[in-house]
Simulated assay, not measured.
Amino acid sequence: MSLACYLLFLALVAVERLAELVTARRHTAWSLARGGREYGRGHYPVMVVLHTALLVGCAVEAAYRPFLPALGWTALALALAAQGLRWWCVGALGPRWNTRVIVVPGLPLVLAGPYRWLRHPNYVAVVVEGVALPLVHSAWLTAVAFTVANAALLRVRIRCEDAALAGATGTRPPVAAGAAGGAP
């Protein structure tokens, strides 16, 4: 894959992120209209900066790295699979999916779609994408830096979501609990 094609792919991922933000804004209005409460506002700007830095880091580092077909095509397949998983999460949660942590009191936990098997499947998609997207064009420094920073952020984010869901339901979410949020 040429650098130009990779940069085009990154641009498409950026457009996808904008689609997520549009979806999240609509879902925020839906949730707030039903008494939803937002949690974890403090970490949200950090998440936005980190995910923006991932795309920028990929573009900058790829200019200095070769495309390695065995690694690149495998990473591309994983990045696309992560997108599929992310949008499956969006579909399963419906208007409850958000890039923010917003919980509408009284709604049951979502146990459909990928939430049947995983507690936070959207974050599986984020982790896979954070490694795979840079490695499409051998940007291993970006993959490592994002993965380390994202691990710290996800630790905060998942605790926030679990506490928010526990507060809304009065119980600790089961292993396959639906998450309130997503990633931009």
Rank of each mutant, 00 (worst) to 15 (best):
M1C: 08
M1H: 10
M1Q: 08
L3Y: 14
L3Q: 06
L3A: 03
F9W: 14
V13P: 00
V13F: 08
A14S: 09
A14G: 10
V15R: 15
R17K: 13
L18A: 14
L21R: 12
A24V: 01
R25D: 07
H27F: 07
L32I: 13
A33G: 10
G40Y: 00
G40F: 05
R41V: 09
H43A: 12
H43I: 11
Y44F: 15
V46M: 13
V49T: 12
A53I: 03
L54H: 01
L55M: 05
G57S: 02
G57I: 00
C58K: 03
E61I: 00
A62V: 02
A62Q: 00
R65W: 06
R65V: 07
F67Q: 05
L71K: 12
G72E: 06
T74S: 15
T74H: 10
A75F: 08
L76S: 09
L76H: 08
A77T: 12
L78A: 15
L78I: 14
L80R: 08
A81Q: 02
A82D: 02
A82N: 06
A82E: 04
Q83N: 09
G84Y: 00
R86I: 01
W87I: 01
W88I: 07
C89M: 00
C89F: 04
V90N: 02
V90Q: 00
P95C: 00
P95I: 04
P95R: 06
R96N: 08
R96Q: 14
N98E: 02
R100S: 02
V101C: 15
V101S: 04
V101W: 00
L107T: 09
L109W: 05
L109H: 05
L109C: 06
V110L: 00
V110T: 11
A112W: 05
A112F: 00
P114N: 05
W117T: 11
R119N: 12
R119C: 13
N122V: 15
N122S: 15
V124P: 01
A125R: 02
V127W: 06
V128W: 07
E129I: 07
E129G: 15
E129P: 07
A132V: 02
P134Q: 03
V144I: 15
V144Q: 10
T147L: 14
T147V: 09
T147N: 10
V148E: 08
V148F: 10
A149P: 06
N150L: 15
N150Y: 12
A151E: 12
A151M: 09
A151S: 14
R155G: 13
R155H: 14
V156W: 15
R157H: 08
R157P: 04
I158E: 12
D162I: 04
G167V: 08
T169I: 08
T171N: 14
R172D: 14
P174F: 10
A176E: 13
G178H: 08
G178M: 05
G178S: 11
G178V: 07
A179L: 11
G181R: 02
G182N: 14
A183C: 11
A183E: 10
P184K: 08
P184L: 14
